Simulated scan of single mutants.
Amino acid sequence: MAVYPEETHVIGGVDTHKDLHVAAVVDHRDRVLGTESFPTTRHGYRLMLAWMRSFGDLRRVGVECSGSYGAGLLRYLQAAGVEVLEVTAPDKLDRRRRGKNDDYDAESAAHAAFAERHTVTPRSRDGMVESLRVLRVCRKTAVQARRIALQMIQMTIVCAPDRIREPLRSMTRMQLIRTLAAWRPDLTAYRQVEEAYRISLKSLARRYLELHDEVADLDDMIEAIVKDLAPELLAQTAIGLNSAAQLLLTAGDNPDRLKSEASFAALCGVSPVPASSGKTVRHRLNRGGDRAANSALHIIAIGRLRLDARSQAYVARRIAAGNSKLEAIRCLKRYIARDVFGIIMRRHREINQSQIAA
């Protein structure tokens, strides 16, 4: 642990909430100097930072939930030049002993930042990767809503009167949707069963088409961002748009926070985990890390097993050496993570250099 002059340096901690953040400050000996609450506004962030600095030279701040409730505070502190650590887990022993309230949680965050335990460097949320994340979240909900609309259409048709149901039986999905959207039911006759069905089916079909167009627009935006961020990634074998987007999200706008490609592999859940006992020496699958990134790497690995001769030969050698197929695929995913991280870091340096030159 680093040692600082005792009269100057302090460490902050923040327990984040929707409308109010609770902050705590500890000194160079990890003693609590004070706790205070601040509103989750820009003015509140400014007051919080001034309050923390009133105790001494602020070295760093531990923030809980920097990806949700603490996102605004994270951006403000980073813009102010303050080192921010994301607190990943509360101190369970301290919580059992003292109980739980917001002041205790803020103090626990400050203690964690002081010891630099249960903390990680958070992803910055001020670049194109954050734009990519927001668009993908929007797309995901639109796809879910579109699927629900289609299911409702199908279930409504099953229950519809014969005169409505029979002509729709042999249509393809898009023929059905466009036919229903073009209907002109009598809106004044909604008390009649057949017209109520027609009104409902037309409404659901129009909803489906609107969501379909929305998803297509979002796909175009996502593709443009991915091509700007990592065109070389898309040129690799079996790496599609969705997999590339997810790996970029996992790396974040500041992939340099990852110390090496090994840390990226661990973040993706493809690093080898020792599972040796006695005379048996082996490694098992890693079930931790970002499971969405792990899924993307798995999809890439399966695609390369079908398309790439080198990957096929590598997995065959692993299996011949005594590994199971799952273990061989895990090794392949580890090598893919290494290649992906190298591409992302090269592109990140190129973007930074171009921004500096501009």
Rank of each mutant, 00 (worst) to 15 (best):
A266R: 15
R123I: 06
H348T: 14
A292S: 13
A251V: 10
H9A: 13
L58Q: 12
T16W: 05
L168Q: 07
V137G: 09
A230L: 00
Q78G: 06
M174A: 03
P231E: 08
A230G: 03
M1K: 11
A358H: 11
V87L: 11
T121G: 01
D103I: 05
R147S: 15
S108T: 12
E223C: 10
R147V: 12
G322P: 01
R206F: 00
C331S: 12
R46P: 03
R173Q: 15
L187Y: 13
V84H: 05
R346Y: 03
A357N: 11
V61C: 11
R198F: 09
G34Q: 07
L307V: 12
K140Q: 13
H43N: 09
V134I: 10
A224G: 02
R346T: 14
L180F: 04
L248Q: 02
M155E: 13
N352V: 12
V3A: 10
L307W: 04
E195S: 08
S131W: 02
R117Y: 04
G13P: 01
A216V: 01
M52I: 06
H28I: 09
T40F: 07
V84Q: 07
G72F: 09
G99I: 09
V226S: 01
L74C: 06
P39D: 12
I164W: 00
L33Q: 02
S131H: 02
A275Y: 04
K259L: 12
Q175D: 05
H348S: 15
A296F: 00
A337L: 03
F55P: 03
D220I: 02
D162I: 06
L211Q: 10
D219E: 10
A50H: 13
Y69M: 14
H17K: 06
S37E: 15
L187N: 04
S311N: 08
R310I: 08
V120P: 06
D27L: 05
L267N: 01
T280S: 12
L326K: 14
R117N: 08
R282Q: 14
C65W: 10
H28Q: 11
V63Q: 03
A244K: 00
A230S: 08
C65I: 07
T88P: 02
L307G: 00
I336F: 11
V61H: 07
A205P: 02
G56Y: 00
R178C: 11
Q175Y: 04
S131P: 02
F264T: 05
S108H: 06
V215N: 00
V137H: 09
Y104G: 09
